[in-house]
């Protein structure tokens, strides 16, 4: 091998090719989260190893998202898609998946995670008929409001991250352990903090915070929607008002994705506070991640409990 310059060139070429390959290998994992709460969870658990995109915001009614071109573009590049499942995204995610041409995120792949399949669900309907409204045969899909479900979701997200990016195993496991510790502590703190809320009856707009109200021990005695997914009607609101005489609710809650109109009406007529709760991170100024979304929701409920 006398041809030194050639050898050097080859070595340089090989080196740069290796450098290129290794940067590709270490490039951030692309995570496509259907909702900001799963984006927050993915960010907690993957840290700098992932670049996380949230398809929706907490101001949007997640049932009615459209298969926007931007979502198809993001899903095309995703290594992991985290959605709620339980038919919550049935109106748009199947189309995004079909259009994206990305086999990593198709059903049955580690890159396709539906949280609802891994956590216990409440309000599972005994019989299913569309005459009863927009039903979710698998039960209430708004599982981000169950601290237990979030803990289980964290385990599953980490499992998937390790499957997709085994090189980061140690990092992911350390992050999960750290998240678990903080989440357990936070759950204990919320339980303690929310003690005065136990037994306080509420009416909610859509069944969006059932898990939270269940966790806090707040009985749900009605929904502003006459049927799930059906906007409040004046006759239904009137019947809720009449119900107040016999079984009074102490407050009426709605999520950040809902119009204030109906809950304000009931609040005024029934003289009970109307409480806006974030539907996820970004749903209120203080709710910036999974932890603060619980903090803020509980603070808002506690504030509503205080006499005016």
């Amino acid at each position: 091998m006398k041809n030194h310059p050639m050898k050097k060139l080859f070595a340089a070429g090989a080196l740069s090719a290796f450098a290129l390959l290794s940067t590709t290998a270490h490039a951030a994992l692309e995570v496509f989260a259907c909702h900001p709460e799963w984006a927050s969870l993915a960010q907690e658990l993957a840290g700098k190893r992932a670049s996380v995109f949230s398809a929706t915001t907490a101001m949007q009614d997640v049932h009615r998202i459209q298969a926007r071109p931007s979502l198809i573009a993001r899903a095309r590049m995703a290594d992991l898609v985290i959605c709620t499942g339980a038919d919550l995204e049935v109106g748009w995610m199947p189309m995004v998946r079909t259009q994206a041409g990305n086999p990593k995120i198709r059903a049955g792949q580690p890159g396709n995670l539906e949280i609802a399949n891994h956590v216990p669900r409440i309000e599972v309907p005994v019989s299913v008929d569309r005459a009863l409204g927009d039903m979710h045969p698998m039960g209430n899909p708004h599982v981000q409001w169950s601290p237990r479900a979030v803990a289980l979701a964290a385990d599953e997200v980490t499992k998937r991250l390790v499957q997709i990016d085994p090189a980061g195993r140690a990092d992911y496991e350390a992050r999960l352990a750290d998240f678990r510790t903080r989440w357990t502590a936070a759950t204990a703190r919320w339980t303690q903090l929310a003690a005065p809320l136990k037994g306080v009856p509420v009416i909610q707009h859509h069944r969006e915070h059932s898990y939270l109200l269940d966790f806090l021990g707040m009985p749900i005695i009605g929904s502003l929607e006459p049927k799930p997914g059906v906007e409040p009607t004046s006759s239904h609101l009137q019947s809720l008002l009449e119900q107040q005489a016999a079984t009074p609710a102490r407050m009426v809650v709605r999520s950040s994705a809902r119009s204030a109109q109906a809950s304000e009406w009931l609040s005024e007529k029934a003289h009970i506070p109307a409480v806006l709760l974030p539907s996820g991170p970004g749903g209120s100024p203080a709710a910036v991640d999974l932890f603060t979304m619980y903090d803020d929701a509980i603070q808002r409920l506690l504030a509503a409990l205080k006499p005016h």
């Binding site: 216990p120 409440i122 599972v124 039960g139 237990r148 357990t184 759950t187 204990a188």
Partner: peptide
């Protein structure tokens, strides 16, 4: 705290069980 966690754990499991049983 751990006991509380355990209790919640079982409550969740039992709820899940009850759901399944209903089905």
């Amino acid at each position: 705290a751990q006991l509380r966690g355990l209790k919640e754990d079982y409550e969740a499991r039992i709820r899940a069980l009850e759901d399944k049983l209903m089905a």
